[in-house]
Simulated assay, not measured.
Amino acid sequence: MKTEFVVKIRGWPFSSLGVIIVVALVGAMLGALVYYSLPALTKEGLLIYTTNRWDPNAGSFGGLAAIYGTFVVSLVAVTMSMPLAVGSAIFINEFTPGRLRGLLIAINDMMAGFPTVIYGFWGLYVLGPTLNPTLFTWLHSNLGFIPLFSTRPIGGSYLLAATVLAVMITPFASSLVREVYAQVPSVMVEGIYALGLTKLDAVKIKLSYIAKSLLGALSLALGRGIGETVAVALTVGGVLKVSQSLLSPGITIPSLIANQFGSAYTQIEQSAMLSLALLLFAIGLTFIIASKLVLLRGGAR
């Protein structure tokens, strides 16, 4: 007989206490962001989210460029990382021998835990100088008639930041997909091979079985990547403008705050940045909650 012990503090299970503490911390952070954002929201209203004029000297704060850049970089990064994450998870689970599998999992998990500043400097000094004169220039020269590639690449850009972010979140997304993929019932796997189907057929059936869980895992990776600061700030270019071209320099909410918060001497400017942080908090929390719900529904079969 298995005996389970539950640690209680004055009648409260320890797990319940942990949930209460986490909820309280999230509520405290949300309350602080709302409180410190009120001066800017009172002055600018929703214009802080819908206009694109950020001029502290003139007392004008419109963060549309940062909001736009945040979504563009995050969505492009997730689009690039999706096939890499799913492909690596399938390769590790289906085609890798035991010892090599353990090594690849260790490398993947180690990369997921690297400090983001490492990815940022790698993107700034290695990936950017490599891709700008080669792939990005080719895209501009041959596909420049498409608005997405209409700008000549020079330095930082949406696409460079998205590429660095994709490399950064792929190990994290791969670990999530790997765990979800491994949860396919063994009875189903045995049935697949009992019917004489190939391994490729088995992979297709497994992927269709965990489709909702895959979406949840990748949404969770997007929620993690949408708030990335250092790596994106070093590679996005830091220019406050909205551009259709992925090869143009831009800015994101985290990089705007990182670059300018230290030099913000007025309360209203700090409040404006915190109002953008409030929006980022809401977006990230929404993605995480939605992904968790999808994961739970995907796992309940």
Rank of each mutant, 00 (worst) to 15 (best):
S243E: 15
P185C: 04
V189D: 03
E269Y: 11
G191C: 03
A277N: 01
R178V: 03
A221E: 02
L240M: 12
F172Y: 11
P185G: 03
S255N: 08
L256Y: 05
A211S: 13
A272S: 14
V187G: 14
V203T: 07
L246N: 00
S248W: 10
A173V: 11
I205H: 04
L200S: 08
T229P: 06
I251S: 05
T229K: 05
Q183L: 11
T229S: 09
Q244L: 15
L256A: 12
Q267K: 08
Q260A: 14
S219Y: 04
N259T: 10
L279H: 07
Q267M: 12
G196C: 08
V232S: 09
L197R: 15
R224E: 06
V232M: 14
A211V: 07
K206N: 13
G227C: 00
V203G: 08
T229V: 06
E228I: 03
A277L: 06
V230H: 11
T198G: 01
L234F: 06
I253E: 13
T266C: 11
V187I: 15
L207F: 09
K204W: 12
V230I: 15
Q270S: 15
T266V: 00
V239S: 06
V177L: 14
G216C: 10
V242H: 12
R178L: 09
E269V: 02
P249R: 01
M273A: 04
T198M: 00
A264P: 06
P185Q: 07
V242A: 09
S275D: 05
G196F: 05
S243V: 00
M273R: 12
